[in-house]
Design a protein around this nucleic acid. Structure first.
Lengths: 253, 253
DNA sequence: CGGCAAAGATGACTTGCGTCAAGCGCGGTT
DNA sequence: AACCGCGCTTGACGCAAGTCATCTTTGCCG
């Protein structure tokens, strides 16, 4: 097992796949694994879910997983690597919507418009499970736990988007961002106190609706306040509690 | 029929109920009506959906429909009136999440946390259809169109939240807000160029993440640029195209 | 009617963060 | 090695919007 090595300098993939699953088991970190296990579905049902999964990748840093306007047919669960999603507005400005780690799902915001409203770009070498959405919906009608999981995933994403929309100063945004990333890494079995930032300062800034320079300044300040250690993109949280406190207004309760 | 009279001075309800539905028909503006009609469900299925609906209200201005922390059991479709949803953050600051007009659905953001993450308050006299969510989910497993409609509603809400999260100046936010309201009124059969603002300047400001004074100033400027007419809360859009143009970066495409 | 409270408008000032500009360090290329 | 480009940092400055303060309007209730 290769835990606690998210910043590992392996040539490829940089974020190792936690595990691979097989005919009757999910990847351990999979967003859907809980849906079945919780309700005690057996092999036949698992098999059905596996049937509609397709492993895709690798995508290398900078490559698109999907693009704005692509017809919506599938959602993607990240198996390894990191993805950023972003829209460009009417004036051509990029707007980063989110970063997705192994075990997380992208594409849910495409359901309503029925085409992808954003681009998804790999930030490092990334692998995915692709789920046909019509097939998944059909399965959901027979497996309430799958339906519930889908509702839950979309609703969760809605909660996240809402929090970011509040008006908060640069320090609070940054602290919340780091705390949230840490929590998500930890949930997936990685270290929640030291990890690698796969995204540039510019992407962080864009995501937090700040200028890149502001991100730089805030990080410098955090460093001299000994809240964090940071060398390039290698991050250590020195005082997670105080960070969480700083960002508490943006964090889910 | 009582269209184009949203600002009518009827004593109660101020926004008249568009229609009432019966055993086998939905209210004309209902968010779910399309789900069945589109797929040609007949009376038995409609009856099932009607069975899990309960009409509630009136709620008077300032009364809570639900509160933060209430266990999540139902979603609500607005039949008449206007509702605002809001959270209070760790420091006790209110954060307005949205305003909901007749035909729209509130409570979807409660699915994931399984309790309401926000308060819902009537802004004027309001009536609702309450749908038991477990019953609705169960029905959705037998009626794919209902499931699809639920996915779609949540996903749509996600899209809205995302747009508001961008960084835009006060004019763009205000213009987008007015344009969006107009579109939604129009979709429901009301006038899209003259309507009543059920919410205070303070609520608008909070929703747009601006100061109340800024809202006041922007509205004054819009008035003297002849984009709008505004007396108290009675609004006329004089130049909807230019408003839309001003807010285009926040508006769905 | 008159008095009070809340909502809204407007002006003066303050400030957080964006913009601009300069400089550093590092990896890649020739 | 020398050069370049890019990501990142840091400082100086300006502006959009927040804060504070004052005033007007409106609605409400005795």
């Amino acid at each position: 097992m290769r835990r606690n090595n998210p910043a590992g300098r392996l040539p490829e993939p940089p974020n190792p796949i936690a595990d691979d699953g097989d005919e009757t088991h999910f990847c351990r970190t999979c967003a859907f694994s809980g849906a079945c296990i919780a309700e005690g579905y057996g092999k036949p049902e698992l098999l059905e879910l596996h049937c509609l999964v397709e492993h895709v990748g690798p995508f290398h840093a900078g490559e698109h997983v999907f693009r704005t306007g692509d017809p919506f047919r599938s959602i993607f669960a990240v198996r390894a690597g990191t993805v950023k999603t972003s829209m460009v507005d009417a004036e051509g400005h990029e707007q980063v919507l989110g970063f997705y780690l192994p075990g997380e799902v992208i594409g849910l915001n495409a359901i309503y418009p029925d085409h992808f409203p954003c681009d998804a770009v790999a930030l490092d070498t990334a692998y995915f499970c692709r789920f046909s959405f019509p097939a998944m919906s059909a399965l959901a009608t027979r497996m309430p736990a799958v339906q519930q999981r889908l509702f839950s995933l979309i609703s969760k994403e809605l909660g996240m988007a809402t929090l970011l929309a509040g008006d908060h100063n640069a320090d609070a945004r940054m602290a919340a961002f780091l705390t949230d990333l840490a929590r998500r890494y930890e949930e997936r079995g990685f270290s929640g106190t030291r990890f690698h930032l796969s995204m540039s300062r510019g992407d962080i800034a864009n995501y937090l609706r700040l200028a890149a320079e502001t991100v730089s300044r805030v990080l410098s300040r955090f460093r001299q306040q000994e809240l964090i250690e940071l060398e390039g993109r290698e991050l250590v949280l020195r005082d997670p509690e105080r960070l969480q406190q700083l960002g508490r207004n943006l964090l889910p309760r």
